[in-house]
């Protein structure tokens, strides 16, 4: 699993570290860590519905922040539990851009082992950095 939960950072909430050899991998791992906070069985989420969204930000770390926030939004607004299928990144002079394709299914308490709801993605100790082996992100979620 390219993410692990960090115990010592967030007393009342949840923190995780996600890794990947590419930017797409670390974004995908972070999205799975977010999903795994809300439901126990990430791999059991069936790819029944496809949704796409685009986001942009002048800062690369805040692009990840925006993507995770959009997934939290879709969980409430569309009741969708989503995994990232693919990401097309682009970068022009001032902006990092990501076009996300995500797949998943509607929340069904009868079938999904639901855990806790995520209120928000926070910027507390939020980081995205390039490492020797690829990329690493640290995220704290408000529960």
């Amino acid at each position: 699993m390219p993410y692990r939960y960090l115990e010592e950072i967030a007393t009342a909430d949840t923190a995780f570290e996600a890794t990947g050899s590419t930017l797409e991998e670390v974004f995908t791992a972070a999205a799975d860590a977010l999903l795994n906070t809300m439901t126990a069985d990430v791999t059991g989420i069936a790819p029944e519905e496809t949704t796409t969204f685009e986001t942009h930000n002048a800062e690369l770390d805040l692009l990840l922040f925006d993507v995770l926030n959009e997934l939290v939004f879709l969980k409430d607004a569309k009741r969708l539990l989503l995994r990232i299928q693919s990401i097309a990144f682009s970068h022009d002079k001032e902006m990092y851009r990501a076009k996300i394709t995500a797949r998943g299914e509607r929340i069904d308490p009868a079938r999904h082992r639901l855990l806790v709801d995520v209120k928000a993605v926070t910027l507390h100790r939020f980081s995205l950095e390039e490492t020797e082996h690829g990329w690493k992100a640290c995220v704290v979620l408000d529960i």
Partner: peptide, 8 residues
């Protein structure tokens, strides 16, 4: 007020 993390 919490003193223990959710995972703990």
């Amino acid at each position: 007020g919490r003193t223990m993390s959710r995972h703990q």
